[in-house]
Simulated assay, not measured.
Amino acid sequence: MSKDKTAHAASVAATPSSHTAEAFASTQAAQDTIDFIEIDEVLTLRRMIVRAPTPKGPVLFLHGFPETLTVWKEIATTLAHDYDVHAFDWPGYGQSSRPASERFSYAPRAYARVLKAYIERAGIDRSKLVIYATDIGALPVLLLALDEPTIARQIIVGDFAPFDRPHHMWENLQNLKAEPTASPTRAYMNKTSDEILQNVHRRGLSPAEQFDLRIDVQQDMIRSWSRDGVTSADAFAHYYASFTRDQQYLEANLDRLKTPMKVIWGEKDIYITKEMGIEFAGKIGAKLDLLPGIGHFPHLQNPKQTAEEIIASFR
C-alpha cells in the first residue's frame, strides 16, 4: 500500500461519522478502523470495520453508485455497541482498485466473486451474518447466494434491478444496457459528474423530502470519482455491459435462492421503480417494506430506519 493510501485511510478514519460528538465517541469506544485488504493480485479493497466489545453478530453493508463506504459510517455508529460492522468500496469506487476492464470485468458476477473473497479473507462468521445490499451491490450478493445459500443468515436488498425490466428503470440506466446508447450515456455521465454527485440523491423527492449529504460522504465521493484512469461512471458502465446477462441468469434460477431474504424499497425511487421490488419480492416469497416518502437511498435519507432494520434482523 502506498503512503498516500495510508494517509488517506487515516484521515477518513478520523472523520466523525455522526452529527453528534456523543455518537462519535460511542464509535471510537467500539474500535473503528479503515484500512485495505488484498483480494487477489489485481484487487485491493478499502474497507471499514467497526468492532463491538461483545458483538451479537456481524453486518456487511454493500454500497451502490456513485457511493463509497463512507455512506455507512453513521449507521455503523448506531450499531457500534452490539454488532461488528463491515463495509468496503467496490472495485471502481472509493479508494479500491480500478484495473483495466481487460483484467477485471466489473460485472455483477465478478463482484459476487469479490464479495465471497472478502467474507472469506475477513474471517466473517456466515452463520450470524446479515448482509444489507443496495443498488449495484444487490445483484452480486443474490448471484452468490444461488451457489452458496449459507453465505448469510439473512440478506436484505432493495432499490436495484433484479430482472431485465428496462421500463421500470430511469432512462439513462435503460440506455446503459446496450449499444448504441451505452457509450454516449457513459460519456455524458463523465461529463456531468459534478451534477451527479451533487444531486443524485435528491431526484424524485419533493423539496420538503430532499436532504443534504454529510460533508465527509460528499467529499469522499468527489475525491474518489476518478482514480488510475477509471471513473466511477466507467465502472458503472462496465457493470451494465454484463447486467442483462446476469439479471436473466438470476431470474432463471430463482428456485435456487434459499437464503432468508427481505426486500426494502423507497416508494419514491425514480431510478428503479417500486414495481420492480414488488415483482421480485412476490417471486421469491419475501417480505417487502415500501418506505413512504423515501427515494433511491433509504440508508442516506433515513439512516436510523436502516439501523433498526438490521437490529430487527437479529431478533
Rank of each mutant, 00 (worst) to 15 (best):
W170M: 12
L291Y: 04
V157L: 04
I264R: 07
V230C: 06
K268G: 08
M189Y: 10
Q218P: 08
G293C: 02
I34R: 01
P298V: 05
E275P: 09
A21Q: 10
T33M: 12
N302P: 09
F280V: 00
S105L: 05
Q174F: 01
D82P: 06
D82R: 04
K274F: 13
E251I: 09
D89Y: 01
I37A: 04
P55M: 07
K268H: 03
T6D: 15
T259K: 00
P184N: 13
K191I: 07
T181Y: 06
K274G: 15
T306G: 15
I37G: 04
D246Q: 00
D32V: 14
K116C: 06
D212Y: 09
G158L: 05
R103V: 15
K262N: 07
A87P: 04
N172R: 13
Y132V: 04
P108T: 12
I124W: 04
P207Q: 06
F297M: 12
I155Y: 00
H296E: 05
E195D: 15
L129V: 06
M261W: 02
R109W: 08
N172I: 15
E251H: 05
G123T: 10
Q28H: 15
R153I: 01
S18F: 12
S17C: 14
P298D: 13
Q305C: 13
K258L: 11
I119V: 01
H167I: 07
K56A: 08
L60T: 04
W265N: 05
D89W: 00
I272V: 13
S96N: 02
T78V: 13
I75K: 02
D228N: 11
R47L: 11
R51P: 08
G123N: 07
D228P: 03
A25N: 13
H238E: 10
P53I: 13
P166G: 11
E308N: 09
R109V: 12
Y249F: 08
T192F: 14
G123Q: 01
V217Y: 07
P260G: 00
T134N: 12
Q198P: 15
L69H: 02
A25V: 05
G277R: 00
K304M: 15
D4M: 11
H201K: 05
R186W: 03
P162H: 01
G229A: 07
Y249P: 07
D234R: 10
W225T: 10
L62R: 03
M276P: 15
V230D: 03
I37Y: 03
V50D: 08
L173F: 14
P53S: 06
L213P: 12
W170A: 12
M221H: 00
Y240H: 14
I119W: 01
I310Q: 10
S183Y: 10
L205T: 02
Q301D: 13
L142P: 01
I264C: 09
A138R: 03
A133W: 00
L143Y: 02
M189E: 11
E309D: 15
F104T: 11
Y188N: 13
H299W: 09
A7P: 11
D212H: 06
L288W: 05
A76F: 07
